[in-house]
Structures are given as C-alpha cells and as structure tokens.
Design a protein around this nucleic acid. Structure first.
Lengths: 218, 218
DNA sequence: CCAAAAGTGTTACTCGTACACCCATGT
DNA sequence: ACATGGGTGTACGAGTAACACTTTTGG
C-alpha cells in the first residue's frame, strides 16, 4: 500500500475475494456426517460443496459464516470455530478467493437442511462416503475432521452433537464415532458424570431391555 | 456472487483487502518480547505495529507472512502458525482489511531486526511493557500470547526460542517465562532429556559457579 | 572460604486403564 | 424364559509432582 500526499491511498495489488466455508457435522445413523450443498452454478455446477459464501462489507467473518449457513442450508447458527484459512492462488478457477474455514457441530435432533437460494439441494453425507467435492473442499473437510478430533478429546464439544435429551450410551456412541476408538463404558460414565456438565432427568428411555436414564446438559 | 449467461461473473460486493500480521516472539533479558515496527505512514504514523502487509496475487498467505517478515524486519522465516483472523469491519480506518495472523518464535541469537521499506524502525518490546499499538494490534498480540501459551505446554515449540547452544537452566527459564509458572528442576531435566530432542555437547558454560553442560537440538 | 548456580534419585500420589457380572424391561 | 442393552466398583500400573543435598567453579 502507498499513501499519497493528499491523504488518499491505493493498494498496489488487486484485492482477492474473501469467503467463508463451513464444515458442519452431525451424527446420522451412527455415522459422522457433514452438510453439503449442490452447486447450482458454474463452476462445479452439480457438484457438492461446503456451505459458505462471500463476505459482505458490513459483517465480520463469523457473522458471514453464520449467515451463509442459514441462507444456504436453513441451519440456525450454533457455535462456530475458525480452524483454517485456504489461500492457494488457484483454488478457485474464476478468480482469487481466500476462504476462511469454520467448524460447527449440530445436534442430531435439529437437522433439517433445506436448500437455499444459491444451492440446488442440501444434504448430509457420511464423511466416510463423500461425493466428489468442488474446489479444494475435500481438503477443507479433511482439515475440519482433524480439528474436530483434536478438540474432541480435550473438551466438552461433543455435547453439541447431542439432542436435548440423551442417554449415556448415546453420548458414548457419539464420542466413539468422532474419535474412531472404543471407550470403556464404566470409565466413560464416571468421567462424564464427574465433569458436572450433565444433569440427570426423571425420565427413562424404554425399549426391549432395561430402561436407560435420560440426561440433559446443565 | 452471480454468474451471467455468457459465463462471466461478478461479485455482489467490493472486495476487502487481505493482509497478514505476524506476532514473532523472542526472549530478551529474561523477558518475552515481541517484534514491532514503527509505522512510517498514516494512519497511525509513528505508532508501533506488528509486521505484516498485503497479500499479493501470486502468493498464499503463509508466503505473504514470510515475505513481509523478511522485508519489514529483516527476519528470516522460521516456522509460522496461523492462529486467528481479524475481520471487524472498522479495524482499519481507511478501508476494509481482513488480517490473517501468524505466530512465530525466533531464537534469541538471531535477533537483529532492521527496519525495512515500510517501517521507520523495528524493535523488540517486552510483552509486559508494550507501547500504544496501531489498529487492533494490541488485541492480536493478546491472542498470539494465548495461542503461544496453549501450545507451549503440549509441544516442543519452545526450542525455537533457544539459540543454537544452551544450558538446561536456560531452557527451563524460557519455559517458565512463557508459561508464567515455575517448574521443578529435576522433573524438567528428566522430561526434556528423555524426549530425545536434545543432544549433549562436549562444551561447558563457565561462570562464577559450577560449569553447566551445553546442549543443542538433535 | 564463600557465593552462586549445576547437578542428581526416590517416594507419594493421582490419574487412566483394564476388567465381569447382575439388572430391568419387552417379547 | 430369553434376548437386549443398562448399570455398577475395584485393582493395577504409569506418569506426574514433591522433595534436599552435594558439587564445582570464580572471586
């Protein structure tokens, strides 16, 4: 950038476009799934991509991510965590686009994605079985999974994947799906109950077996 | 973005400028210090700011950070870690600027910052005693310190703060300065020696006390 | 000989992990 | 009655944290 004597200034180089992409995960049918939208426009028309879009002049990046998630997929904004920035000069064939990537988790009782204006369709895909993705979105999903796994072991973030009310067995299943390793039932229960993050309810889930206590977040 | 029938496209909104800022830390006189440059131009002319600058069309963000660090402060590129993105619409009074922030550590035997073209001066400041900073750079420094402290406890990153050859006592001092807590001498030494990251040398540091073994990175 | 920093092992405790059986319900 | 998942305690080992004195040099 150079500043001129009259106080105006110019940038030496053209500005790139700035966008957000959101990798939002949930649990469906016992598998970790990510929300994708079908692109209605070129390039990559008909391919699947992460929800996201361009930054507007009056919003910051996290607001942009929240808005795009709502507009394109009808998903109400949960907690968003910035986990990476993707800036390879040729990652968008049209023009230079910098993408700031956000990670989010959606509880499995609120997943009703509906395609928005820019998307022909919106669907959940199991991460183990992804279609061809537009742009460098495969790479972004991989980075999001790595970020999710690294924070999942150290924090209570996994509660965001759960519906309002759940059993300890379902919570453990969520943990095992995300971390890809089995946990000891007694150790898991002891740890999570001592954390103080769960509240016992009076209700039980019934089935062809002993009823399970239902818990909720405090 | 909208795509036209002829295949061209336009963005709905003007593009922001995209820049990097680098918070590079070292140890000076037993204190954690960050490199700042004195701004030679408005706005904030004469104030201090983190090194950084605008993204060029043919580079990605980490290359930009590495280049700016070299150009503005004469510092050769160590490992850079992206730790945040700053995007408040009014963070730059001139125009919309998105800043991607990088964290770096510099070993204390290579710190000879020299002011580059865009900077009137470049100096190290103890983080406990910062001058007034331009833009939102105070906030960026705080975020960088938080990121540094959180990774310092889990990784070997602190070796990047050390000169080529150092004693275990000096390494422990670096650890204590960054984490702001004292460590047990015997436990620290046992841990770091078992890590396999250090190599004993034949040399000793002399002084008015028992000579200390000098180590280096493997 | 005194000051100053270097160097060195052992013990206690905490935390994580492994492990197996009985219980309550629906069919 | 049986099939299904729910629910519970303990023992062991590893790793972390606490702890004090002797050694070597320069002045």
């Amino acid at each position: 950038m150079s500043t001129h004597e009259d106080g105006s200034f110019t940038y030496r180089y053209p500005h790139p476009a700035v966008a957000t992409d959101i990798a939002i995960f949930t649990l469906r049918e016992g598998r970790l799934a990510v929300l994708l939208i079908e692109r209605g426009e070129e390039p990559f028309q008909g391919d699947w991509a992460l929800p996201g879009g361009f930054l507007r002049p009056d919003e910051d990046l996290i607001s942009c991510a929240r808005r795009e998630l709502c507009e394109e997929a009808g998903v109400e904004a949960p907690l968003l965590r910035q986990f990476g920035v993707f800036s390879a000069p040729d990652r968008d064939p049209r023009d230079r686009v910098i993408s700031v990537a956000y990670l989010a988790l959606l509880s499995s009782d609120r997943l009703k994605p509906q395609a928005g204006s820019d998307a022909a369709d919106a669907r959940w895909f199991a991460v183990a079985d992804l279609p061809a993705l537009a742009f460098d979105h495969r790479q972004i999903v991989e980075a999001a999974l790595a970020a999710l796994r690294s924070v999942a072991e150290a924090t209570d973030i996994l509660l965001d994947l759960m519906p309002a009310r759940f059993t300890l067995t379902r919570l453990q299943a969520a943990y095992e799906i995300v971390t890809s390793q089995v946990a000891d039932k007694r150790n898991f229960r002891a740890r999570v109950l001592e954390s103080g993050l769960l509240q016992e309810t009076e209700d039980m889930e019934r089935g062809p077996h002993r009823p399970a206590r239902i818990y909720r977040r405090v």
